[in-house]
Design a protein around this nucleic acid. Structure first.
Length: 214
DNA sequence: CTACGGATTTTCT
DNA sequence: GAAAATCCGTAGT
């Protein structure tokens, strides 16, 4: 089982370690499990792209200052949630944004959520005929994966360590990434010199099939 | 394939 | 009052 030490490292290290781990959401006794394929590191007070740049401490950002392994969920552009995991020790506001996942368990429930909460109009009537590429397109963005897994601000600040009564946590199901690629982070043009830093990490995904061995 | 605008509301200045 | 760690449909190449 993943323990606290796993999260007690800098954000860049954690962003790479989270690739291949399973984000688990339980709703009404059913489980949705999605394997993480893309992450971004936000490096706290020294990172102009970070909400906590310069030590900013507001109602929103205070959960970033928690110890490693807690959820940081916030609303972006008025309509989408973004899911992060805090990194490093308490008082160091580093975090890892989860940018994309691959649906693994609970696909039916996941598809129900997309139908209920997504603004997409061109959804197929029958989800059981979806190709791997179609399925991956339901969760290949930070807002999309939160819609599909019904992750909202109500889940902000929760401990992501696995426990029997938790309905939101991270688990190791044994997926091992192949080559880990990296590049600049997305949507942070305002961050000046930090906008170029290669702090986005991802595995290659071909036709909806990520580069994992198990 | 790329480019653009609209949706929508919390958060911070 | 403006910006925001985004997504989706439409139009153009």
């Amino acid at each position: 089982m993943i323990n606290r030490d796993f999260y007690t490292c800098d954000g860049i290290t954690l962003a790479k370690k989270l690739l291949g781990k399973t984000l688990v959401r339980r709703i009404g006794g059913d489980e949705i499990g999605c394997v993480i394929t893309e992450t971004e590191a936000y490096m706290g007070v020294i990172d102009k792209a970070s909400h906590a740049y310069g030590g900013r401490m507001t109602e929103r950002t205070k959960t970033m200052y928690k110890a490693g392994g807690y959820s940081y969920v916030y609303l972006i552009y008025g309509m989408y949630s973004c899911m992060n995991v805090t990194a490093n020790a308490e008082g160091l506001p580093e975090a890892v944004l989860i940018r994309a996942v691959m649906p693994y368990t609970g696909l039916d429930l996941l598809c129900e959520n997309v139908k209920k909460y997504s603004r997409r109009k061109n959804l197929p009537d029958k989800f059981d005929t979806l190709t791997p590429k179609d399925i991956y397109s339901l969760t290949n963005g930070p807002g999309k994966l939160c819609t599909a897994m019904n992750i909202t601000k109500a889940l902000n600040g929760l401990d992501m360590l696995e426990s029997p009564d938790s309905d939101f946590f991270i688990r190791d199901d044994g997926f091992v990434p192949g080559e880990i690629l990296s590049g600049p982070r997305i949507g942070i043009d305002y961050a000046e010199e930090d906008a170029m830093k290669p702090w986005r990490f991802y595995v290659n995904v071909k036709n909806g099939k990520p580069d994992f061995s198990k």
